[in-house]
Design a binder for these strands. Structure first.
Lengths: 163, 163
DNA sequence: TATTGTTATACTCTATAACTATA
DNA sequence: TATAGTTATAGAGTATAACAATA
C-alpha cells in the first residue's frame, strides 16, 4: 500500500547546519529522520485503535479514559488535563461511562467542589483487558531481533527518563 | 463485534515458553517492554496533536486527511480505507475541506462513479506547513545522543521494512 | 474573586441504512 | 448484481459561554 511518506521526500531539511541539539549532517537532520520513521510505525499501528476499542464496546476516547483511570481516584479536572480537553466535555464522557457502570463519581471531602472518579469492579476488569490489548506489540516490533529490541528498549528508557 | 470471546480470560503472556519470535526471559516479554515504552512516548507526544492541527485551523481528522493527500489524486473510497472509516463519513469531511478551498473533487474518466480528490494550491501549501510541524521531533528525541539516534533510525527502518 | 463541575448550544466526527448513478 | 458516492439520521466528541456551588 501507500500512504508512505517514508523515504522522507519533502523532509530533506538541511536547515540548521551548525550548532544546537539538532544535528544536521550529510544525511540531513538525524533526529527528524528517526522521529519520522517512528511516527510512521506508530501511525500505521494506531489506525487499528478504534476497532480495538470497539471490540470492548468502548469509543476511542472512553478507552483512553479507562487507561488513565487505573491509579486510584482522579479528579475530573485532572482527567480533563490528561485528555487535553475542556472540563465540560468530561461531564458527558463520565455520564456515559457511569451509566454503563464503569466508573462512579465521589465528592471529595477536602474540597466539595471536586468530584473524584473511581473505577468500579467492572471498570477495573475491562481496563485489564484493554491494557492487555493496547500493549500487544505489533508484528513489526515482534519481528525484530533480540538485540534490536534491547537497544530500542534502552533508548526509549533514556528518552523518557530525560523528559 | 460485541460478544467477545473468552469473557475475562486473560492472555497469560509471559508463560509462553521458549520458541517463536516472542522471547520471554527473566525480565519478561522483551517486545512488550520495548513497545510499551515506545507507546508511552508517542502517546504523550500525541496529546498535542489536536492543538497543533488547531493552529492551522484544522480539526485532527482534517489534518490526517491533508497528510494522506499529498501524492497525487486519491479516490474517496481509498481515503475512507486509509482513515478506517465509513465512506459516508468522507463525504462530509471532503465537503468541509472543499468549502474551505483545500481540495477539489474530480470525476474519474475511467470509472465515472469514482471521484478523485486533488489538493488545491492552498491545500498543498497548508500541507507543507502541517508536515513540517508533524515531523518536528519532540525534546525527548532531540535530546538523545547521536549514536542512539542512528540506532533508533536503523531499527525503525528494519521494523518498517519487514512489514 | 477564583475554581469545579454542570448545562445549553453548536459544530465536527462517526456509523447505519436507504438511495443514485454508474458498472 | 455489485460498487462509489450521497443523503438522512442518530449518537458521540469537542469548544465556548453562562451558571451554581464552593472555596
Amino acid at each position: 500500500m501507500r500512504g508512505m511518506n517514508g523515504s522522507g521526500e519533502q523532509l530533506e531539511r538541511k536547515t540548521k547546519p551548525g550548532s544546537g541539539p539538532g544535528q544536521a549532517g550529510p544525511e540531513g537532520d538525524l533526529p527528524r529522520q528517526a522521529w519520522t520513521l517512528l511516527f510512521e510505525l506508530m501511525h500505521t499501528h494506531m489506525r487499528n485503535f478504534p476497532a480495538l476499542a470497539a471490540e470492548l464496546d468502548l469509543s476511542p476516547v472512553q478507552a483512553h479514559v479507562l487507561r488513565q483511570l487505573g491509579e486510584g481516584p482522579l479528579a475530573m479536572s485532572t482527567l480533563a488535563a490528561y485528555l487535553s480537553c475542556d472540563a465540560s466535555n468530561v461531564t458527558g464522557l463520565v455520564d456515559r461511562m457511569e451509566a454503563r457502570g464503569l466508573v462512579v463519581r465521589r465528592s471529595s471531602e477536602q474540597d466539595r467542589r471536586v468530584k473524584m472518579l473511581v473505577l468500579t469492579e467492572d471498570g477495573a476488569a475491562l481496563r485489564e483487558r484493554l491494557l492487555e490489548r493496547i500493549f500487544e506489540p505489533p508484528d513489526a516490533i515482534c519481528g525484530l531481533p533480540e538485540e534490536d529490541l534491547c537497544a530500542l528498549r534502552d533508548i526509549m528508557r533514556r528518552a523518557l527518563g530525560a523528559q
